[in-house]
Amino acid sequence: MALVLARRFAALAVTLVAATMIIFLIMEILPGDPAAIILGVGAQPDTLAALRAELGLDLPVGTRYGRWVLGLVTGDLGQSYTYSVPVSELIGERIWVSLPLALISMVLTVLIAIPAGVFAASRRGRLADTGVSALAQIGIAIPNFWFAMLLILVFAVSLGWAPAGGFAGWDQGPGSALRSLALPAIALALPQAAILTRVTRSSVLETLGEDYVRTARAKGLTLNAALWRHAVRNALIPVVTIMGLQFSFLLAGTIIIENVFYLPGLGRLLFQAIAQRDLIVVKDLVVLLAGTVVIVNFLVDLAYLALDPRLRQAHAHAL
């Protein structure tokens, strides 16, 4: 068990380092000189050179990469060109919008998808199954930002139950903050839930055909009891895998959804930073998001260990 964990941690570290290198390289290759962007068109060559020296842009690539990674580890993410505040401060403010949003929509996704998928699988080929599958197909086809607008149209414009956009802030009390996050979270959850429903359904259908489910039936368990006690837990392994992969889609979704609802979160910050060529913010944010994806997938790996005792043996390889 300890050996398994150690191996996973080593793999995590390697992936994280690889991620920082690739992001650094991409940002190097992409056109655009930060100093020129800050000073604008028509800057004097010597002021430009002075600023480049001040920003450390004239140092060799290796040194700059080393400094940047060191900064990431120590929490010194550098200074935003446009906001003139430390990037860590910007991120620290906005993460309290994006993180709750992602968590709420993930919870919604699971609460919708797993019961719906199990239900459809247990009614295979019948009307309920066809209905759930059709809804899932439609859910996948609907762009989430359009669904967000429909939610605004119905719940904000017509019914007035929730704000059409903006974020009240947590200091106004959790009630109003959660109200601002409700519609965005639903909009983010819809396509994820649709995909996860399909995965759950087919995974449960597969485990329902397993011998141990028949064994459970032979013990006298009713179909429903055998389904929930034996088929579902075994079916969760591929479901958890997809949930891990979905998390990266969820982060990407926040870029669009935060723009639809004008939420001051990380996605919107990234979008604005890109528009304003605030490259250091872009670089830090992307590495943060990519790091989150990598860590979430690491946690998914750990979840396998909890779900499947076979993997706890040292010689078992990661799925």
Partner: peptide, 11 residues
């Protein structure tokens, strides 16, 4: 695959 595709596309 591990990298959010839309995020990169936006970049």
């Amino acid at each position: 695959f591990a990298f959010p595709a839309l995020l990169s596309a936006v970049m």
